[in-house]
């Protein structure tokens, strides 16, 4: 399991870095959605499905969409 954990965490960090480094804000938000996906798996790994389901619902349904809504009202590029 530890291998999976480490892999997940590494990808998570990569994801965070990618989200941060992407110049295209839309891309950053999309990658941030992937971040929350991976986070949900990690919650499961840590044995807290409640947090995972909340994160799933939020990451897929709320945060990303709100961010894209904001981008649509503002500008897409930095």
């Amino acid at each position: 399991m530890a291998v999976l954990d480490l892999l997940l965490l590494s990808i998570l960090v990569l994801c965070a870095l990618a989200a941060v480094r992407t110049r295209d804000l839309l891309g950053a938000v999309i990658i941030y959605a992937a971040y929350s996906l991976l986070m949900a798996i990690i919650w499961l790994q840590l044995g807290s499905p409640d947090v995972a389901i909340t994160e799933a619902a939020l990451g897929a349904g709320v945060t990303t969409i709100l961010m894209i809504a904001t981008i649509s009202k503002t500008g897409r590029y930095e």
Partner: peptide
């Protein structure tokens, strides 16, 4: 289901509410 069965299975008010909300957002989209 997630809302009402929050005390039996994962979930609860917040997660379920967000899922319902996601459906409405989907509709609006």
């Amino acid at each position: 289901y997630v809302i009402t069965a929050g005390h039996l299975s994962p979930g609860g008010g917040f997660a379920g509410g967000t899922i319902v909300a996601a459906s409405m957002v989907l509709y609006a989209l």
